[in-house]
Amino acid sequence: MNRGNSMRGGASISLVMITVTGVLNEGDEDTFRHAAASSSEAVVVLDSEGGVVKPL
């Protein structure tokens, strides 16, 4: 997970980039939720062939 700064309307904001790389395994959703909950604004980059994805 990378953090960077951005400008919006003259105000600096903290933007989180969440990168998901590789095959998705059971339990990875908990790791993703934890990373996503740490920021109010984030960009998610997926570089994966897929894997285990369960609907909520």
Rank of each mutant, 00 (worst) to 15 (best):
M1G: 15
V52E: 08
E49N: 13
V43G: 10
V45K: 13
L24E: 00
A42I: 01
M7Q: 15
E49P: 06
N5P: 03
E41Y: 12
A42G: 03
G51M: 06
V43A: 05
N5V: 14
F32D: 03
G22H: 05
V45H: 07
A36M: 07
K54N: 04
N5G: 04
K54P: 00
D47N: 15
G9R: 14
E49R: 13
T19Q: 13
S6T: 15
N5H: 10
V20P: 06
V23C: 11
L56R: 09
D30F: 02
A35V: 00
T31Q: 08
G9L: 13
N25P: 01
V53L: 01
L15V: 11
T31V: 13
M17E: 06
S38I: 07
E29M: 09
H34D: 08
S6H: 11
P55I: 10
G10S: 10
K54S: 07
G51R: 13
L24G: 06
S6P: 08
A42S: 15
E29C: 00
D47G: 06
A35I: 06
S12P: 06
S14I: 13
L46K: 00
G9P: 05
E49K: 06
R8V: 10
K54L: 02
G27P: 05
L46A: 07
S14F: 05
S12C: 14
P55G: 09
S38R: 15
R3G: 13
D28M: 10
A37D: 04
I18G: 02
R8F: 09
E29L: 03
S38L: 14
M17I: 08
A37W: 00
R33N: 11
H34Q: 11
L24R: 04
V53R: 09
G10I: 11
G27N: 08
G4D: 10
G27T: 01
A37Q: 07
R3K: 14
S38V: 04
N2G: 11
V45S: 14
T19V: 05
V23W: 08
S40H: 13
L46W: 01
S40P: 09
V16T: 06
A11P: 01
G22E: 01
S40T: 12
N2S: 12
G50Y: 01
G10H: 15
K54I: 04
S6E: 11
A35R: 07
E49F: 01
T21N: 09
S14L: 05
S6K: 10
H34N: 10
D28Y: 00
G10D: 10
